[in-house]
């Protein structure tokens, strides 16, 4: 039996997390000499998904909501012995819905490949990154939803056989509209995030934060107090009850590092903290720290990074 993997797209383009999902499915499938079935609504040649490990690619008109897609994947799962879904905002609704429909055991917030396949054991984040749980899933129809960007995977090519199918999608939920900021790096998917807090003193000072983000190709974010007082939109608030991120690089400017903030960012691979207060708790969670005034350090850092980019 095969591993079924959901390939999410946005406006007809594969999401980056989808390639990770296919590579994850390939790694898992290979442990038991299985194949990978990738399910996508994108009509594109097989090459790209095959490059990440898709053996069969089912192109199908997928619904626009988690419940709608869950019903379709349930039908396709008859051909599979396990399912992989990236933990994107859609995936985080889809995986549990599908688990309820298929009675499949589910691991979300997964941060490892299977440690063993019989029984199936995995590691997942718990207690707001203060704990790691090893979980065991029943073998009926295990579903793994992993944290994007948490597992480095080397792609292994698959066979890439294409097929189209039609399965109708049903959901009582009607989508009235979707709005996605264009031209900006989406925060949950960003590889680098530049985040600032009350140390910036006012919303008019965010120009240099955006400049720093621009140089790094990073998304901008902010602390909770900053979104609560309306300096920045709520959609930029990272931390517990805001958006949780785990980029390769997280730069915190003028954020003291309250535990609620750390809960949403501490899974980031490299953390840089700039703060005037050498006692700021965030330094304890950081890899690199600079004690200094943001208004002096950030422009210098922008210049140094520009010089580095120009030289490399």
């Amino acid at each position: 039996m095969s591993i079924l993997v959901f390939v999410e797209d946005w406006n007809g383009a594969y999401k980056k997390a989808s390639f990770e999902a296919v590579a994850y499915a390939k790694s898992w499938a290979t442990m038991n000499s299985n194949k990978v079935i990738a399910v996508t609504s994108v009509s594109a040649p097989a090459g790209e998904l095959a490059g990440y490990g898709a053996d069969h690619i089912i192109q199908i008109g997928l619904g626009s909501t988690a419940m709608g897609i869950a019903g379709q994947l349930k039908e396709l799962s008859a051909e599979a012995s396990g399912i992989v879904i990236a933990g994107t905002s859609l995936g985080r609704s889809l995986a549990p819905a599908l688990s309820a429909l298929t009675s499949g055991a589910l691991s979300t917030n997964t941060i490892s490949l299977p440690l063993s396949t019989s029984p199936l054991q995995l590691k997942r984040g718990a207690f707001s990154s203060k704990g790691i749980e090893t979980i065991e899933l029943d073998s009926t129809m295990p579903i793994v939803s992993f944290v994007p960007n948490s597992i480095g995977l080397e792609p292994v090519a698959g066979e890439g056989n294409l097929e189209s199918r039609e399965i109708s999608s049903n959901d009582a939920l009607e989508v009235l509209s979707t709005e996605v900021a264009s031209g900006k790096v989406a925060l949950p998917e960003a590889e680098a995030v530049v985040s600032a807090g009350r140390g910036l003193k006012g919303p008019e000072n965010w120009g240099m934060i955006e400049e720093l983000a621009d140089v790094l190709g990073a998304a901008t974010a902010c602390s909770k107090p900053v979104s609560d007082i309306g300096w920045r939109p709520h959609s930029e608030h990272v931390g517990q009850t805001g958006i949780q991120v785990n980029p390769n690089l997280y730069i915190a400017i003028g954020i003291s590092g309250a535990i609620q903030h750390l809960a949403g960012v501490s899974a980031s691979k490299t953390i840089v903290v700039v703060n005037t207060d050498p006692e700021a708790p965030f330094f304890k969670a950081a890899d690199y720290g600079i004690v200094g005034d943001a208004f002096e350090v950030v422009p210098k850092l922008v210049n140094a990074l520009r010089a580095f980019k120009a030289a490399s």
């Binding site: 055991a105 749980e133 090893t134 029943d138 890899d287």
Partner: peptide, 17 residues
């Protein structure tokens, strides 16, 4: 269908540079 096997704390971070 799922059961926790064990819990551990994440590896401590090296001291900040």
């Amino acid at each position: 269908p799922t059961k926790p096997v064990s819990f551990e704390k994440p590896a401590g971070k090296a001291a900040v540079k």
